[in-house]
């Protein structure tokens, strides 16, 4: 049984259909990436998984249970967490408060402290900025905060929406290395990226989304050699 299964999901914004019968699955322990051009429906897919938009048809199952009607905050408690597009950090809260909110639904305060230390070990730059307002961080630091904050909830499945967007190449590498590290610690990852090259390199399997439908799917290494993918997404 897959950790996450999406079956024939349709999503509409008003009269406009953004997703057409999208199906995908993420197995326990995998990194799966979802690539596609602007407006393909990647963010919509993630939003449909975590309950920010509701599918008109189809089903979303997490850990064997349908979550199509479960509120977003409840999914966080169950271990399904998203670091949203554009980072979504709280600029009016300090870095420490942002991280603490990541652990909002947890009551095991001792373990939260340990997790905070782990997150700060992963992103030492945040450690120096704990008292600073989130809005004063640089773009790269904000991305680290967004990922670190998501980890504070101890997710089973982490949804990342364009974590490398707008970052310098060196930082992009840091972010992808971090994704590898998080995955090694047992967190399953569904990764949305425009940087298809890096995404495919760092994931096991991948889906290609085109105008709201899944156009291709398969092993990441296989897709990297696919001429159509090369032409459309890898700029080769």
């Amino acid at each position: 049984m897959a950790l996450l299964e999406i079956e024939h999901v349709d999503v509409f914004y008003g009269a406009v259909q953004a997703l057409r019968s999208v199906s995908l699955r993420v197995e326990q322990g995998e990194v799966v990436s979802l690539v596609g051009s602007n407006g393909a429906g990647k963010t919509t897919t993630l939003n449909a998984i975590c309950g920010l938009v509701r599918p008109r048809a189809g089903d979303v199952r997490f850990d064997g249970q349908s979550i199509a009607r479960v509120p977003t905050h409840e999914l966080v408690r169950r271990g399904l967490v998203m670091a949203p597009e554009g980072r979504g950090i709280f600029p009016n809260l300090t870095v420490a408060e942002n991280l603490d909110l990541g652990a909002y639904s947890r009551r095991d305060h001792g373990a939260v402290k340990t997790d905070l230390d782990r997150v700060l070990a992963l992103f030492p730059r945040l450690n120096e900025r704990m008292r600073q307002k989130g809005g004063t961080l640089s773009g790269g630091e904000q991305q680290m905060l967004a990922i670190g904050r998501a980890l504070m909830s101890r997710p089973k499945l982490l949804l990342l929406d364009e974590p490398s967007l707008g970052l310098a190449p060196l930082l992009v590498k840091v972010i992808f290395d971090t994704i590898d590290a998080i995955n090694r610690e047992g967190v399953t990852v569904l990764l949305v990226e425009q940087n298809a090259n890096a995404a495919l390199k760092h994931s096991k399997r991948a889906y290609v989304l085109e105008s709201g439908s899944i156009a291709l799917e398969g092993d990441a290494s296989q897709l990297r050699d696919d001429p159509a993918v090369k032409a459309a997404y890898l700029g080769e």
Binding site: L52, P71, V76, P84, F90, E97, Y104, S153
Partner: peptide
Amino acid sequence: AAMRACSHSMKTASLMG
């Protein structure tokens, strides 16, 4: 902190649980 978070964005706050 959750109140201040909601005042910034209810959507993002819900993603924190």
